[in-house]
Design a protein around this nucleic acid. Structure first.
Lengths: 194, 194
DNA sequence: TTGACTAGAACGATCGTTCGATCTATTTTG
DNA sequence: CAAAATAGATCGAACGATCGTTCTAGTCAA
């Protein structure tokens, strides 16, 4: 099967399937046989593209991190003030949570340490550092109250991020867009300079 | 029947060992053999006290939830205003994070759904509902700005909770007590009525 | 004697991974 | 240009390791 249209079509199929299964059932509850069955790609092919099961998870993780990093960079280019940048970040995260919940689940809600022991925690990945950089700059500009950068960015984004995990948990019933204005009002008030 | 339990020392030893191993290596990376080796309790004894591996995790989870529920109830009894209650909650969580990081890790940072599929998510467990109840009451009293209760409690505690997970991740280097005042200032400002 | 508890060898299932065979498309050779 | 050679993909049966759990036997207190 799978008349190779592009050489790496199967590679992408494996990654897409892994994202679904890893987020739905968890990494350890997903066997390689599950991935071959759901993706239609044979064991041999998977091991041709990836070193092992961990390699699949790693490739997935890095591709999602990279994507997020690009989107954040675009936001930083598009908006000037820290206020607008950070609000755009929250809006983006809310949007992705609704349209691609698996992506958000894998980024925020999966405990990577358990199956990617080499990898640093998500919180120290590039996108999170970009968020801290925005806050840092906002502090220098006087937009954000002067205090520890870690504290400020944690408080600024903490509410929104917990809102996302609550939504992924099914605690929040309405689409996140419905809460965006309220959440942002609270979040910004927490760190606004005046 | 059910005589007042003089709970077997071995049962507690298993739970204590499981807490350490589950949080250090993860549930799926911890084998029953690991638990027998580290606890010194034989396989047969473990299966005498617990139905299966999941039963160990479940007992652990429920005991920690119950303990937290009690501590929160004590806080609600001890303090009057919502402001003081919620601040005491954050202070307590920060304190536990430092003195018993495994407890906090297991409560906040472990993805229970993967090995306790029957259990509801942490966010809808009793302690989290207590937190929401405090906020609700604060809103009725006029201490907290009137908006969706879920939004308010998420924003009020979101920063602190993310601070905890960051600390558990090793991103935050100072003991959490060092940040308590700043974090609480931000958190309360996010939802304070005036 | 009974029943709660301890012990650890053994079992069956399942897992991640390997391996040799086969197919296909591209490149090299005669 | 045709044929042969090479390299990249694909496939799935089979392997060895490890897992959670069971089972039988034994201990000890009441």
């Amino acid at each position: 099967m799978s008349t190779t249209s592009t050489p790496s079509a199967n590679r992408d199929k494996v990654l897409a399937t892994a994202l679904i299964l890893f987020t739905r059932k968890g990494y350890f509850n997903t066997s390689m046989r599950d991935i071959t069955r759901e993706s239609g790609v044979s064991t041999g092919s998977i091991y041709h593209y990836f070193r092992d099961k961990e390699g699949v998870a790693l490739a997935l993780y890095q591709s999602l991190i990279a994507r997020m990093q690009e989107e954040f960079s675009a936001i930083m280019r598009r908006h000037d003030s820290t206020h607008d940048q950070c609000r755009a970040v929250v809006a983006l995260l809310f949007r992705i949570t609704e349209s691609e919940p698996e992506v958000m689940t894998f980024m925020l809600y999966v405990k990577h340490r358990e199956f990617l022991p080499e990898e640093r925690p998500v919180c120290s990945s590039a996108p999170f550092e970009q968020m801290r950089a925005m806050v840092q700059r906002g502090m220098e500009r006087g937009e954000i109250v002067h205090c520890d950068v870690l504290v400020a960015s944690t408080c600024l984004f903490g509410g929104a991020i917990r809102m996302i995990t609550s939504r992924l948990d099914g605690i929040v019933e309405q689409p996140l867009a419905h809460y965006l204005d309220d959440v942002w009002a609270c979040s910004w008030r927490a760190v606004a300079a005046n």
